[in-house]
């Protein structure tokens, strides 16, 4: 087997693809959250002048990619590949955005893990020499997700405290195989490794408790990653999960604790970062957009300035469909992990 594999299912990227730019688009509730001032674009109205929420979401996806390109002073023609997806049936947001962008495109579905899946495959393409510039993007929209997975928006319903709110947002990160670019906003961020998730299902069937359904997948990937890479939490400043929310995060920590791994001081969750507890969205944020905009608007900047020197970024996905839920199936989860770090030159090594 080639020398870029580590252990059971981890990969290393010896050429260290750079993350050179990012773009984020969010709506009003996200702007009112703790990360509100960091988004590149905030929508006044979540229909964005379109006659359906679905049309607004695909516009957000496209805009996140265009913003990331603009910030790096690149044209869409210079993209060797766009990777990404969203939550809607047949990933229409990503597909229709790719139609507008007119670039080589691989559509992906990993539910809310999509941004990590995109970055993982993007890094493989760049490290393998198959692409120089790759855009990795994901989006979700509260109003499109509600109608697909739950109830009409105007229906008066109550939600349990474990429920999470789908983030309305799209995030994109640009990978480069040629190192930092002239006009690009990020110069110091590299992707050095990844762990491919496997589908884990411990039998949670409550679609209002996706954090608990996905936590085992996150724990499984984290344990495998540390095992494969022969690392411990001490090798990281931060281990961040995508959208486990408050309850899911506590279950993740308890599962890891069973295996003697204490992440209490190192772990954060995008679902808890994107909305404050004052916003009363129960267990926090969720959706593809949740880790995508948190990474694009907040986390990458932390690595760029060295506030976080080495980060394990996991996005978790709940691989259910409305149909599987109605047929009584339990909720399978998945989590992919990426190692994002400040490059050695920037640290003066």
């Amino acid at each position: 087997m080639a020398g870029k594999r580590r252990g059971e299912r981890s990969l290393i990227f010896p050429t260290r693809p750079h993350v050179v730019s990012a773009g984020s688009v969010a709506a009003q509730n996200e702007a009112a959250g703790p990360l509100g001032s960091l988004f590149d674009m905030v929508l006044e109205d979540d229909t964005w002048g379109e006659n359906s929420f679905e049309k607004a979401e695909r516009k957000m996806f496209e805009s996140a990619v265009r913003i990331a390109l603009d910030k790096a002073k690149l044209r869409s023609g210079s993209l060797h590949c766009l990777l990404g997806g969203d939550l809607l049936n047949q990933i229409v947001s990503a597909n229709f955005a790719a139609r507008q962008l007119n670039v080589p495109f691989l559509g992906l579905y990993g539910a809310c893990s999509t941004i990590a899946e995109s970055l993982l495959i993007g890094s493989v393409l760049v490290d393998g020499g198959y692409a120089d510039t790759v855009a990795c993007a994901a989006s979700s929209h509260f109003s499109t997700a509600e109608r697909q997975y739950r109830f009409p928006l105007e229906l008066g319903t109550t939600v349990p405290p474990t429920a999470q709110r789908t983030v309305t947002g799209a995030g994109c990160a640009l990978l480069s195989g040629k190192g930092p670019m002239g006009g690009a906003p990020f110069r110091n961020i590299v992707v050095t490794g990844a762990t491919i998730g496997r589908v884990v299902d411990l039998g949670i069937s409550d679609a209002s408790n996706m954090g608990a359904a996905m936590a085992p997948a996150a724990a499984d990937t984290i344990l495998s990653h540390f095992g494969d890479m022969e690392e411990t939490p001490d090798d990281y400043d931060l281990v961040i999960t995508g959208d486990l929310g408050r309850f899911g995060s506590s279950m993740l920590l308890s599962l890891l604790n069973d295996h003697g791994v204490d992440l209490t001081k190192k772990h954060l969750d995008c679902g808890n970062l994107v909305f404050s507890t004052k916003q009363k969205f129960n267990s926090g944020g969720s959706g593809c957009g949740c880790p995508a905009i948190t990474l694009a608007a907040h986390l990458l900047g932390k690595v760029e300035i060295g506030e976080v020197k080495r980060m394990l970024f996991l996005a978790t996905g709940a691989l259910l469909s409305p149909l599987s839920s109605m047929q009584g199936d339990t909720i399978p989860g998945i989590a992919h992990a990426l190692v994002l770090e400040m490059n050695r030159e920037a640290m003066g090594l």
């Binding site: 474990t162 039998g203 949670i204 408790n209 608990a212 309850f247 308890s254 599962l255």
Partner: peptide, 10 residues
Amino acid sequence: YRERVKQRAP
């Protein structure tokens, strides 16, 4: 795990 989720879920 299911038992733990049941016990601890708010």
